[in-house]
Amino acid sequence: MRALGAGIAEVVRAGDVIALRGGLGAGKTTLARGLLHALGLVEEAPSPSFALVQPYDPPIVRLPVAHVDLYRLEDDADIRELGLDDYMIDSLVIIEWPERIGDRLWDHALCLSIAVADDGSRCLTAQVPDAWRDRWPPR
């Protein structure tokens, strides 16, 4: 998951949204940490489970990033108050548990679903929107 995150970091742009789906322990945060590390973050990125939104700004990363965890949210009003649209103006937005947004997930979001097999390996399914067609899969 870390290596995949690092590969994605090579092709992300400000305004991108990456939606990470999967059960607890599937590797969503690990993928996000690999991406953040490849963007320049030196320290270990905390899970945003309690902060809900963990922002990172240059110079500690090469472009602004908002790492979002919606696991604990169920109320639409709470989600609207996060101001995720505002982050998309100049930031990469990584969202864990995007199903909490329902059908309001942005059309340009790269949706990655991670499943854990019985042997512990991961199976990745990607829904690739037009905005990502020339960048997916990362090299």
Rank of each mutant, 00 (worst) to 15 (best):
M1N: 14
R2V: 15
L4W: 11
G7R: 09
G7K: 12
I8V: 15
I8T: 07
V11Q: 07
G15I: 09
D16I: 10
V17H: 01
G23R: 15
G25Y: 14
A26F: 13
L31S: 06
A32M: 12
R33A: 09
L35C: 07
L36G: 01
H37K: 05
A38W: 00
G40K: 02
L41E: 09
L41Q: 00
V42C: 10
E43Q: 05
E43P: 00
A45K: 00
V53R: 00
Y56H: 02
P58V: 10
P59M: 03
I60W: 08
V61K: 00
A66W: 02
H67E: 13
L70V: 02
L73Q: 01
A77R: 11
D78I: 07
I79F: 00
I89E: 15
D90G: 06
S91L: 11
L92K: 06
V93R: 02
I95W: 01
E99V: 12
R100P: 06
I101G: 02
D103C: 04
R104L: 11
A109F: 03
I114Q: 13
V116A: 06
A126M: 08
A126P: 08
A126C: 12
Q127A: 11
D130Y: 12
D134T: 15
R135H: 14
P137K: 08
P138G: 04
